[in-house]
Write a protein that binds this DNA or RNA. Structure first.
Length: 439
RNA sequence: GCGAGCGUAGCUCAGCAGGUUAGAGCGUCGGGUUGUGGACCCGAAGGCCGUGGGUUCAAGCCCCAUCGCUCGCCCCA
């Protein structure tokens, strides 16, 4: 039996070009998060089972996670998401941390399920959370940051849209305005979340299955359907329109608009799967017809830190997966040509031993340099540099060693410059800095 | 977990109705003589046709199972 060459189902190998792309994406994520004053944290990939049971449904814990019993009989889960972990960390130091607390992380997460487009078993996710702010300024900051990240990747606002809703508004609508029980309301909100995927008659019959015959008879279903057709806050019935949650949403949309973010919309059917959200929720959709899906989402969850037995802490956060981001960038042609880190390929022609001094010198001067020790013909060595897309070529042969003057060739443009090692190094470093400033 | 489609060289795929030693392009490696690459020409390596079983004189092709991939569903972190 030959050994398998494929990575484990739903997981990925990162060959250098893949890793370069990942570094690029993570780099932009970090850059923007830090520009907003967020600090990076990390945590173990293993967590004890209990911390998931408090907040999520049983199915997620039992069927959609990698879980096992360790040798000490502890129930262990490979983390499927970061929110419980970060809540745990904050709760553990609830008293000593100072608020508002702004944290981010890019954890590796695992879920046990069938892989499909945009959803693998293994993925990485940018997680950003702000703790300690009850005011909607927290949501505002988070959404502005998300938008900023898109812009930093080169996207324009036509490529995506930001949809907003409020859990409080939904509760108010389903329970107080229409009059469903809280059980019916919870079941209905999960159903409404799937509305876009179902055709209308199927959706209606699914509603009928969920609600009591009495509710059906009293016209509540019609009332619900009418409500779900509303796509503008101003068209809500008065009782809802004047509710705090609707006013908050309206203010949020206005503020975003003032910040130049106009690709927003109110989507009353937007739920987010989890029950832990307590206020405004949002998702960003790709507008590309081939990928018309939610790429990231988040919202306010004020109860989770408190679930660890400490004084509750208002929190807003979001998670953004690397797979959905990569799909988006690819589809919208936003992937840059990402070069290898190596800047110089040193080709040795004559005396390998005497060539070591200039190579060491260039590295001391701060250059990333790979050496071809193969002693092959010059042309062959150049071909290798070319294939590795290393930008500069340095030839070290007897002439160079004798005169202590070297020639650096930029392979793409075929331009050559000649000079001392430090002159060449300065040139490369200058070009490197120019490139960085452009990005 | 459920349903559908697909598995032939590193990659993209051909492969006739089941009929001898399984093909192309790209890529890789080598060559086209002296210290300058990308083009072009020549050549080579590389496949138990995903795996196991079955039907048949004969299976890459048909049947069953299994694994994997893709797309839906469920669920969505």
């Amino acid at each position: 039996m030959p050994l398998p060459l494929q990575p484990y189902k739903g997981a990925r190998d990162f060959y250098p070009p893949d890793k370069r792309l990942q570094k690029y994406m993570f780099g932009k994520w970090r850059e923007v998060a830090e520009r907003y004053g967020y600090e990076e944290y990390d945590a173990p990939i293993l967590e004890s089972l209990e911390i998931y049971q408090a907040k999520t449904g049983d199915e997620i814990v039992n069927e959609q996670t990698y879980s096992f019993e360790d040798r000490g009989k502890r129930q262990v889960v490979i983390r499927p998401e970061m929110t419980p972990t970060v809540s745990r960390m904050v709760a553990a130091r609830r008293q000593e941390l100072s608020y508002p607390l702004r944290w981010y992380s890019i954890p590796n997460l695992w879920r046990y399920e069938r892989p499909q487009r945009g959803r693998l078993r293994e993925h990485w996710q940018l997680n950003v959370d702000i703790f300690g702010i009850a005011d909607s300024g927290a949501e505002y900051e988070i959404i502005v940051m998300v938008d900023d990240i898109f812009k930093t990747f080169g996207a324009d606002s036509k490529m995506y849209e930001i949809r907003l809703n409020s859990r409080q508004l939904i509760d108010q609508a389903l329970i107080n305005y229409i009059g469903f029980s809280s059980n019916e309301s919870r079941a209905l909100s999960h159903l409404i979340d799937r509305k876009a995927k179902m055709d209308k008659s199927k959706f209606i019959s699914a509603i009928d299955d969920l609600v009591s015959p009495k509710a059906r008879a009293s016209g509540k279903v019609e009332k619900l359907l009418a409500l779900l057709d509303i796509d503008n806050l101003d068209n809500l019935p008065a009782m809802l329109k004047l509710h705090d949650s609707a006013l908050d949403l309206k203010k949020m949309l206005r503020q975003l608009n003032q910040a130049g973010i106009k690709n927003t919309l109110f989507d009353i059917s937007l739920m987010r799967g989890f029950d832990y959200y307590t206020g405004i929720v949002f998702e960003v959709y790709d507008r590309h017809p081939e990928n018309n899906r939610s790429m990231l989402g988040g919202g306010r969850y004020d109860g989770l830190v408190g679930a660890f037995g400490v004084t509750p802490l208002p929190t807003v956060g979001f998670g953004w997966g690397d797979v959905t981001l990569a799909n988006f960038l690819e589809l919208h042609h936003l992937l840059p040509q990402i070069k290898t880190e190596t800047e110089i390929y040193a080709v040795l022609l004559d005396d390998l031993e005497k060539s070591q001094a200039p190579i060491a010198k260039l590295r001391q001067l701060g250059l990333d340099l790979a050496v071809d020790w193969s002693n092959r013909k010059l042309g062959d060595q150049i071909k290798t540099a070319n294939k590795k897309s290393i930008p500069y070529l340095l030839v070290i042969g007897r002439n160079e060693l004798k005169n202590n003057k070297f020639t650096l060739k930029h392979l793409e443009s075929s331009q050559e410059i000649t000079g001392s090692l430090s002159e060449l190094a300065n040139h490369v470093i200058e070009e490197r800095n120019n490139l960085k400033n452009k990005q």
